[in-house]
Each structure stands twice: as C-alpha cells, then as structure tokens.
Design a protein around this nucleic acid. Structure first.
Lengths: 151, 151
DNA sequence: CATTTTACATAGCTTGACTATGCAAAAGGC
DNA sequence: GCCTTTTGCATAGTCAAGCTATGTAAAATG
C-alpha cells in the first residue's frame, strides 16, 4: 500500500505528534536519571566525534548558551572532556569520555527495559517496519540542515 | 526483510533517539508559537474528548500540578473550557474549544511547512513505511498504560 | 460518623530553553 | 601593520515546563 507524495505532509504531522508522545513517555519512564537533554547531547556528541561547543549546539538544535550549560553539567559528571582546539585558541573540542559512553549505554538499557512492555508482542513484520522508518528519518535528520529558503 | 523479535529492544532504542531529535527540531522550527507542551496537551485533549484534569495529566504523562498550569494557560487563551462534571463536585471536565482546535490545526500546518524541506524527495514507498510505523507506534501508545509489573 | 482517599490548586525548586551582552581571538580590509 | 568586523563562547537574566510537597474540600470507605 504505497502512499502518494501528496500525503507526505499529513504523515509528517502524525510523525511529529507520535514523536512528542514518545519523548514524553521516555522522559517519564527514566525520571530518576539525568535529563533528556543530557542524554540527547551525549548521544549527539558520541555520534559526531570531537566537536566545538557551537557545533554541538547546532547539531542538538539548541542555542549556544544552552549548550554551554549542558556541557558544564556533562564535564562535571566526567562524561565529557574539553580538549584544546589546536586550530583556534578561542575554542575547545568536546569529546565524550569512556564513562560518558558507558553512562549513555546504561541509560539506553534502562529506557528500553522500561518501554519494552508497551511494545510487547510486535511481530517481526512490524518491527521491520519501525526499523525502516527510523532509518529513513534518521538519514534525513543527519542531512545538512535544510533552510526554508532555496539553498 | 523481517526482523526477529530479539531485535525489538535495539529498534526501540533507536526509535526514541530519533523521536528526541524530531521533537527538538519541531520545537526549534516553531519557536515563535506556543510551547510544545501546549500543543501536545491540546492534541491529547482533542483526541480524548472531555476529560478531567487528572486524566489529562495521565494521558499526557505529566504530573497533575504541571497539567493544572498548562490548563490555566490554555483556558486563558480561550482554547480550552472548563465544564462542570455533573458526577463529581470536586472536578471539572476540560474540553477543547473551536478556536483551540483551529489553533492546533494552524500550528500543525506551520510545523509541517517548516519540516517539509527536510523530507522532500521521499518516494511513495518510504512515505508508506513511515506512515505504517507511525500507525503501529500510535496504537501502542494509545493502549492502556502498561506497568512494569504484572497486571 | 469518623477516617481515608480522591481531585486539584498552590507553593517552591530545578533545569532547559531563549535573547542580550561582554570579552577575547581570529579574520578581513586598507 | 593597524583598525574594524566577525567569530566563539561565557555570563546574565527571564520564562516555562517539569517535579515534589502541601493544603482544602468532596467523595468513598469502614
């Protein structure tokens, strides 16, 4: 059952609604851990490799001062370290530490365990469908940031 | 390409990561409108029909005082009205107003327009895949709230 | 009828989000 | 080489969303 391209807007609208619900559920289920912003940041950093604070802010789609604060928290936890950027004395490179990556994995494990009951009984076909959609969306999100104007 | 059920945890983990990214993107792209919490609440209310404050809090997965505040904002905007609950003098029923539903639709339209460039070029097969995944997840989220203990 | 539970408002706190501003390094222009 | 502009990020301040704790009144229970 293929969809025509003029159904894309409606599908995207529903996708965002579902995503909002999922993130809220995830946040509530892992309430005792660090905040979603912390995990989201650590995840972006792990994926991007060593990056500047401003770059990480852009990747995470938050303002630079927001990221300054988040990084401060992450450095305090020992999950992120600052490395001098040899190319620019104003800047440092941020990198996830080993314990940072371990903490991220632990959160992920805890989260999955908590949401699993809600998805029990999915058959392989359904799992594949979700995996595929996730892949498509992931790819689009990792693309260079689109502007609303003609590039 | 079906997946086996033991891949469900990993798929769910990725699903949450992608959802976090999407909600952040949506929030940033509709920065000038009301907050995501407002829209999420209005959306839940529209879907659930007239409901009590505590019930709406549970549906939205936030604490009751959080919902009290959100509802206060929504009532101020004229997007939600309080209706006496004939069955219980302590409680009121909350219902979305027509202008509330209109505002929600306007937000949705604006959001879709803003994220569309990021998803341009998806072919009907991909759109169908996302739509299907969204449906599966939506259904699971609408199910009675699972507990981590045996019900 | 007294006690307990329920429903929600209020109080207070923390954190994530933003814009504005300041300081210093780097880049650009003359 | 020097001055101006841009860049990178820290700091300051504000607001809202999230939470727990508490209070009041209605409803349910024993």
């Amino acid at each position: 059952m293929a969809h025509s391209v003029d159904q894309l807007p409606a599908v995207l609208g529903e996708l965002i609604v579902v995503s909002n619900k999922l993130t809220r559920m995830a946040a509530q289920l892992t309430d005792g851990t660090e905040s979603p912003a912390v995990w989201r940041t650590l995840s972006a950093l792990r994926h991007a490799g060593p990056v500047r604070l401003g770059g990480l802010a852009a990747l995470s789609r938050v303002a630079q001062p927001t990221m300054t604060k988040l990084v401060h928290t992450l450095v305090e936890r020992g999950w992120v370290q600052r490395v001098a950027d040899p190319a620019d004395a104003r800047a440092t490179l941020l990198a996830a530490t080993e314990s940072g990556e371990a903490a991220l994995e632990a959160w992920r494990t805890e989260l999955i365990a908590a949401i699993l009951p809600q998805f029990e009984g999915l058959d392989p076909d359904e799992i594949a469908a979700i995996a595929r959609a996730v892949g498509i969306v992931q790819q689009r999100l990792d693309a260079p940031i689109a502007t609303t104007k003609e590039a």
